[in-house]
Every structure is written in C-alpha cells, then in structure tokens.
Simulated scan of single mutants.
Amino acid sequence: MPKLDLTLNTELPEETVSQVVTGLTELTQTLLNKQPDVTRIHVHQNQSLCYVNAAQVTGPSAFNLAIYITEGTNTEEQKAQWLQATYQLLNDVLGEGAPQLPNYISIHELDARDWGYNGLSQFARNR
C-alpha cells in the first residue's frame, strides 16, 4: 500500500503526467512488489517556487518524490533498485536539464501500526 507524492516546479501536459504515473505504478509494482490497486499517487504541479543555491529554478523541471511504505516490507536492494529506476524514469520523461538540478527521491518507512487506509492500519489488515 504505497502512497507517492510527486512535486514538480512546472506544469506538465496531461499525457506526460499520465506517462509518469503509469511508470511509477509499474516500477513500484515490479521492484517493490506493491499492489497497483492500492497505490496512490499525488502529483503536485507548479504548487510552489523552487530554488537551488538561492536562485529560482525556471527552466527544466525540478522534482521531489516521496514514497510511503510499510516498514520491513522491502529489502535494501529492492529500495536501491527502485530509487535508481525511478530517477531514470523521471529524468527521461522530464527531459534535458533535470540532471543538473538536485532532484530528490525519498523512501519513508512507517510502522504498520501507524498507518493504513479506509480506517484500518496495515497491522490490522495483515492479521
């Protein structure tokens, strides 16, 4: 049951957003063994200003991606593969220029008792 939050400093065409969301869902299923039917992705576009070294980023897309997963459900190798493949996907889709920016991807592991969906914790769902 992953939740992903992608923040972009630019506005993307709908077909590009669809490509990103499809790619993230597939990578998350393939590399982290997460079920697509409970994978939720929020895309925040042009929500805030982005600065690097105190200068506003106005050119290529800068991104920040956070994924929330249940603690202990993935190996270090799986997470490393997901980080690398996800960066490559976003870099490929967002185009030239993105590699020069510090773009961040983070994995947040939460205790199964501390999060869930539709009123049940992951701990309760797995019992």
Score class of each variant (00 low, 15 high):
93 V>A: 06
91 N>T: 14
101 L>D: 09
86 T>L: 08
83 L>F: 11
94 L>E: 05
109 E>H: 13
59 G>P: 02
89 L>D: 10
72 G>T: 02
97 G>A: 07
107 I>E: 11
98 A>D: 01
103 N>C: 15
86 T>W: 10
85 A>M: 05
95 G>R: 05
66 A>K: 12
106 S>T: 14
88 Q>W: 00
93 V>E: 02
79 K>S: 06
101 L>R: 15
78 Q>S: 12
59 G>L: 06
96 E>Q: 13
67 I>R: 11
77 E>L: 07
92 D>P: 00
99 P>W: 03
82 W>L: 07
104 Y>W: 13
69 I>V: 15
92 D>G: 00
84 Q>F: 00
106 S>R: 14
73 T>G: 04
79 K>H: 04
87 Y>N: 15
97 G>L: 05
76 E>W: 01
107 I>D: 11
74 N>A: 11
81 Q>W: 00
60 P>F: 01
77 E>A: 13
101 L>F: 10
77 E>S: 10
98 A>F: 00
83 L>K: 07
103 N>E: 11
64 N>C: 06
90 L>V: 12
60 P>D: 08
84 Q>R: 13
60 P>H: 09
91 N>L: 04
107 I>V: 15
68 Y>R: 02
83 L>N: 10
103 N>A: 11
94 L>T: 04
93 V>N: 01
58 T>V: 07
65 L>Y: 03
65 L>H: 05
74 N>I: 02
75 T>H: 02
94 L>W: 03
75 T>P: 01
61 S>C: 10
69 I>S: 10
75 T>A: 02
64 N>Y: 08
86 T>N: 12
62 A>W: 13
82 W>S: 07
109 E>K: 07
108 H>Y: 08
100 Q>N: 15
85 A>G: 06
71 E>P: 02
109 E>A: 14
94 L>H: 04
103 N>L: 09
68 Y>C: 00
99 P>M: 05
83 L>E: 05
76 E>R: 14
107 I>P: 09
74 N>V: 03
82 W>M: 08
65 L>C: 08
76 E>A: 14
77 E>C: 00
58 T>F: 00
102 P>V: 14
85 A>R: 12
70 T>D: 04
58 T>A: 01
61 S>W: 00
93 V>K: 07
81 Q>S: 09
86 T>D: 10
106 S>E: 10
87 Y>I: 03
89 L>S: 08
65 L>A: 07
68 Y>T: 03
64 N>H: 12
99 P>Q: 09
82 W>C: 08
105 I>M: 07
81 Q>G: 04
